[in-house]
Design a protein around this nucleic acid. Structure first.
Length: 242
DNA sequence: GCGACAG
DNA sequence: ATCTTGTCGC
């Protein structure tokens, strides 16, 4: 992120970098969200849905909320959104009703956006439902259009020579599905970025790089860490919130 | 039909 | 997602 005026000349740029110099009347990006769902050890249905909001680019947590939920649908690759999205929407609706001033301008999701068989993964699904831009973050590659672990290992990872390096994920059809990012110097395994909703891949990449203090972008990482902490601090009885 | 498969 | 020991490093 160089914060130059040039990057803001891109019509797809959603936010300015300096409130007084973006030159487009766009508000600067100041609040980014992260969502995740952590599961209880033995019970495959009991889980904790979490939403955190961090200041950008400082990456300090300014809001957190958790909700014990009971998953009804099973996990089926390609259908993750149907299993988890409603719980995430509920958390955002609550924030919008109680503290709208803290609503994130962008949400990092622990799941893919358009990097999906039908081009509409959890990140895209959530973005549309809450009408907020989203970026999909995958920790493992989701096989689609010829892009698989073998392809990533032989054609993508070798290109990631340094921290911050990215390589677009292009399928055999020629379609651009997302990008692999080496988020830190020691991260041999990249994270996979894909457009969720109302953002371009190039901007998603720039913002994600700025949000990485560790391999996993801080918003998603904090949502994960804190939801697990919540489960440790709140023993469950019958499996649902109590 | 068989195998692979985000979280 | 979760199951799990040790280990390298700040």
């Amino acid at each position: 992120m160089d914060g130059s005026l040039l990057e803001c000349l891109n019509p797809l740029c959603l936010w300015g970098t300096e409130s007084a110099t973006d030159g487009l009347g766009l508000p600067p990006l100041r609040l980014v969200g992260g969502v995740d769902i952590s599961f209880v050890k033995g019970d495959p249905k009991a889980a904790c849905a979490s939403l955190v909001v961090l200041s950008f680019p400082e990456m300090k947590v300014v809001y957190e909320n958790f909700e014990m939920v009971e998953l009804t649908l099973p996990y089926i690759p390609g259908f993750l959104a149907f299993r988890e999205v409603n719980f995430l929407v509920a958390l955002l609706d609550r924030l919008r009703a109680q503290q709208p001033e803290l609503l994130p301008q962008l949400i990092f999701v622990d799941g893919n956006g358009v990097l999906h068989q039908r081009g509409f993964g959890l990140a895209s699904h959530l973005g549309v439902l809450v009408d907020i831009p989203t970026i999909g973050i995958g920790k493992t590659i989701f096989h689609v259009d010829g892009i698989d672990m073998n392809h990533v290992k032989t054609m993508v990872v070798p290109k990631l020579s340094h921290s911050g390096a990215t390589a677009k994920l292009v399928g055999i059809s020629g379609r651009e599905w997302g990008a692999a990012l080496r988020s830190t110097e020691d991260s041999t395994n990249p994270v996979f970025i894909s457009v969720g909703h109302r953002i371009s891949l190039d901007h998603a990449i720039r913002i994600t790089k700025t949000s990485c203090l560790h391999r996993i972008p801080e918003p998603v990482r904090q949502a994960d860490l804190r939801s697990r902490q919540y489960l440790r601090d709140h023993p469950y009885s019958s499996g649902v919130a109590k």
